[in-house]
Design a protein around this nucleic acid. Structure first.
Lengths: 208, 208
DNA sequence: ATTCTTCTTGAACAATGTTCATTTTCGTAT
DNA sequence: ATACGAAAATGAACATTGTTCAAGAAGAAT
């Protein structure tokens, strides 16, 4: 048998269906939320048996984790697409990009952060690492804005800032507990970033 | 029959068991997480039938919601216990109290924020209101620190600040995706509050 | 064509939420 | 005290959903 899956006929079909399953699951999570995702629904929608889902992902959580993995990737792609020319604008761009992604894919993002493993199965390392990396994207522009600070300090600072942004957005987007009215969220977020930067001693025109 | 439940013998027993059920559920959530809470476990631990749980709470989510309701109450109690003498110290106290509660009751707090209703049953209004109230507790001290600002502005500001704190803490406490190392969390949080206040133009000694 | 490997299937099982007819409990009226 | 009836408790039965696996189908290798 060929090692490379894409080259064998069998492998192509398998991969094709794997993609289909993921796509179906993602769509379901995005529209109806993680809680109403069911194996049988996914299998039926994909036109295959329940067992095939298990062949492909091992256990049902595996499918969810795969969707989540791709969610971080999509998020990261969006965040890294933010122009890095001006560090201050980049920070705002990052916050804004996160807000945009969270708005458009609220349920997917929730699935990423709220999904708990069954029993005490370990949470996949790679997803963890990817989320960390995404949250570290504020590091580079902050370093440029704060050249005199201890780098370790800035590293923590950037993750804190991103965590704060995450908190504001994730609570702000909950229609349930509207911490901040959605319309205002965008500008408020920008204001928040500015305020915090001001607190860090960064004033407009301070960048390298 | 007596209207007041506490006064009838039957009512006393009923209430007693209700309390027991809640206590068992809370303990289970706190130690093993929301996902592994099962009706049968709760019923068995309480020494009653499954049906009784349903008699008491209507549906299983009802029990969870009751626990969550009491979680917000406990959180609020802890937050309102923070001394209000000095507004700056109060803000730090609130952030610290939240961190303390989140550390001691990580799973309970997660249950509060992560629990999703089945299908599209509406999220209980009262819990929502209580969470909002808790998040508004930074309002009073901020008003004192920023007497010249538009009150509506300060209202939003306070909820944003609390949301930010929430984000930092909830991500920081996830062992899964350690955004900030736990040991440092406390001092970093204080630093965050200070930085943000500085950005708002508040310097030490600025309070009324 | 034959054989071997791999994948697919879906029935069966297991775990869990939910219902409800029956039984039990218990306050109240006689 | 007894009988009656409302309220509560019960748990078997059911519904839903995750999981397994023996048997069969499909594809690759020779």
């Amino acid at each position: 048998m060929n090692i490379v899956q894409e080259e064998s006929r069998r492998g192509r079909k398998k991969l094709q269906r794997r993609t289909l399953l993921i796509e179906i699951a993602r769509r379901s999570i995005a529209t109806k939320g993680l809680r109403s995702l069911k194996v049988r629904d996914v299998a039926e929608a994909a036109g295959c048996s329940i067992g095939s889902v298990y062949n492909e992902f091992g256990y049902f959580d595996g499918l969810i984790l795969t969707v989540n993995r791709e969610t971080v990737q999509a998020l990261t792609a969006r965040l890294t697409a933010v122009p890095a020319d001006d560090p201050l604008r980049q920070l705002h761009g990052l916050a804004d990009a996160y807000l945009g992604f969270a708005t458009e894919h609220a349920n997917l993002l929730r699935s990423l952060f709220e999904h708990r493993m069954e029993d005490d199965r370990p949470f996949p390392e790679d997803i963890l690492a990817m989320v960390m990396d995404a949250f570290a994207l504020m590091h580079a522009p902050l370093v440029r804005l704060l050249p005199d600070r201890d780098p370790d300090d800035v590293a923590l600072l950037s993750r804190m800032m991103f965590s704060a942004v995450h908190g504001i957005i994730s609570l702000g987007l909950e229609e349930r507990m509207v911490a901040v009215p959605p319309e205002m969220l965008r500008e408020r977020l920008a204001q928040f970033v500015d305020t915090h930067l001001a607190g860090l001693g960064v004033t407009r025109g301070n960048q390298v």
